[in-house]
Design a protein around this nucleic acid. Structure first.
Ligand SMILES: [Mn+2]
Ligand SMILES: [Mn+2]
Ligand SMILES: [Mn+2]
Ligand SMILES: [Mn+2]
Lengths: 246, 246
DNA sequence: TCAATTCTTAAGGTTAACCATAAAAAGTTG
DNA sequence: CAACTTTTTATGGTTAACCTTAAGAATTGA
């Protein structure tokens, strides 16, 4: 009999639930994959590999997102996000990086621990929450891995990750660099911890062996060799050190 | 060809995903309903009303939770949480209240805005995250609505909400009280805002009309009448004010 | 005590998000 | 351009979390 207050649960985002978690993950993936190489379009095959989903599943998701006008799909060519899709992607990446920053800066998480948590939290983050968190963090420029935290209006992805930065694998012997960002890959981050390498570390390249594909850095008074695979995941900018110019 | 890193998405909680969002909501609901009146057991009907689900759905969920040993169900009698179920409930309530506190204390949300956000965030909150957040908040005793934030070991629910507190609807004329907690109901909270009533406000009851069921309080130098329905949702403790004793 | 009411549960449906199989369509290449 | 490969898509499954309908079981109370 007790006519208790009726509670409608599961408003997963805010009110109308426009995009599900799965859809959001696809949008983000397309955004990220769309300029990892240089090709504009992201093929279904790329998505299938990325998510370890079947071709059928990818096709279904892509078609669904197309219907929602988040992307334009051309069979045998791939998908391009619409402006709507880009906005969604940027909203998610912004939330992701804000959470990562919160977890490390405020709660003391290590940089290799935050990605998974952020991967979940980003999907429950209203614009209001993201903005309040961002302000609370003091409007940080970058996440713990050095990637820019975009504003909602920053749809140009070129600016986001590698803006003006150089892959360490393309850096030159004899010059000095400062580490600006790293790929958010747990194994890599743990490895970098073990070498005492972190964002804003400055070092000099003392060797580049093209045959063995190894770059050797100097910092903290010792030499550290890095494989090409690792060097490809680190982004640096050149440092013009006065004392070194002499 | 690009053999990209395979990413398994959707680890909704942490690793093994023992309880889904729906299951967690049921566990919490049983916990909450189990002493709203005084009866131990929570009937399927109560749950059906609470969630606006059908009897069939409730039955399925309850049976599923029974299989997972989160509760013991007796047909026609209702469900009681097992210790496992209680632990789960407390974990969720703890996370809920910690998030609410974070949102108000750190991000400046109003107390009527935090429940919905917390309702989602609680389901993605590992023990580690909850503990770190809690420490970051300075180990607060209560949420913005005055309810205790339990430790994971606090399974006794009596202590949680009304421990030593009195429903304002049962308070006595002429005495002084301090508001200690309120039911987390948006409409109520907004109403209290309009009256300048907040946690830790002290006031005196100058009138209790049993016929009209209205309590009249004095604070801020004015009299405010509250209906019985509202007074039932406010919990107070008596204040022994020296200056008033004379 | 037995009829009315309420509660439970069996049977079967829907949708979302995944899967497999296999045919059809497009692209690639010798 | 024909053979081969890759991509798409039609069909049809599965599971989880909801639903409806309706039958059967327990409780209640006159
Ligand atoms: Mn990340
Ligand atoms: Mn990052
Ligand atoms: Mn709440
Ligand atoms: Mn609360």
């Amino acid at each position: 009999m007790s006519k208790r207050q009726v509670i409608k649960e599961k408003p997963i985002i805010k009110g109308k639930q426009v995009t599900s978690r799965g859809e959001e993950d696809y949008i983000k993936a397309i955004y990220k994959l769309s300029d990892e190489a240089e090709g504009e379009r992201v093929t279904n095959h790329q998505l299938a590999v990325y998510f370890a989903h079947t071709a059928q599943t990818v096709n279904e998701m892509v078609r669904k997102l197309e219907k929602k006008e988040m992307l334009v799909y051309q069979p045998y060519k791939g998908s391009v996000l619409t402006t709507l899709g880009m906005e969604e992607a940027v909203r998610l990446i912004r939330a992701h990086r804000i959470w990562e920053t919160f977890l490390t800066d405020k709660l003391g998480y290590a940089w290799e621990e935050v990605h998974e948590e952020a991967e979940m939290l980003e999907h429950l983050t209203s614009t209001k929450l993201a903005d309040k968190l961002y302000a609370f963090l003091g409007a940080p420029e970058v996440c713990p891995h050095g990637n820019y935290i975009p504003a909602l209006s920053d749809l140009k992805r070129d600016d986001l990750d590698t803006c003006g930065r150089l892959k360490l694998s393309k850096a030159k012997k004899g010059k000095q660099y400062c580490l600006k960002s790293v790929v958010d890959d747990k194994a890599l981050l743990v490895y970098l911890n073990s070498l005492n390498i972190y964002i804003d570390l400055c070092f000099k390249i003392i060797e580049r062996d093209l045959v063995s594909d190894i770059v050797t850095l100097t910092y903290d008074g010792r030499n550290t060799p890095l494989s090409g695979a690792v060097a490809q995941k680190l982004f640096v900018c050149e440092v013009y050190d006065a004392e070194d110019n002499a």
